[in-house]
Simulated assay, not measured.
Amino acid sequence: MSGIYDFTAMSLAGEDMPLKRFEGQVLLIVNTASACGFTPQYRGLEALQKELGPRGFSVLGFPCNQFGKQEPGDAKAIEQFCDSNYAVTFPMFAKIEVNGDKAHPLFRYLKREKSGLLGSSIKWNFTKFLIDRSGQVVARHAPTTTPESLRKEIEALL
Rank of each mutant, 00 (worst) to 15 (best):
Q41T: 01
F22Y: 15
L118A: 14
L150T: 00
E155L: 12
K114H: 08
F126P: 03
E23N: 08
P18G: 11
R43F: 07
D132F: 04
R140P: 04
M10F: 12
R112K: 15
F38T: 03
D101F: 12
L60I: 12
Y86A: 08
G100F: 08
P105F: 09
A77H: 07
R55Q: 15
K111P: 00
Y86E: 06
I4R: 09
F38A: 05
F57T: 06
M1Y: 12
L110E: 03
L117P: 13
P147F: 04
L28T: 02
K69H: 14
E71T: 09
I78Q: 05
R140M: 00
D101W: 12
E51S: 14
Q25K: 15
L52W: 04
C82Q: 10
A142G: 08
A33F: 06
A13P: 08
L130F: 01
S34W: 01
F62Q: 06
C36W: 05
G37I: 04
R21A: 13
T89I: 03
V138A: 04
G61S: 11
L106S: 00
H104F: 13
K128G: 02
I96R: 06
A94C: 10
K76T: 11
A139T: 05
R140C: 01
H104V: 10
E71F: 11
I154M: 08
W124T: 03
D16W: 12
S11G: 12
Q80E: 13
K114P: 06
L110I: 10
S58K: 13
S115A: 15
R112L: 15
G116S: 09
S120Y: 09
D132T: 05
T144K: 13
S2M: 11
A75S: 14
E155S: 09
V30T: 07
V59M: 13
K69G: 14
A139W: 02
N99D: 15
V98L: 11
L28C: 04
G116E: 03
V138D: 02
G37A: 07
T8H: 10
V26L: 05
F67R: 01
W124G: 00
F62E: 06
A35F: 14
L106T: 06
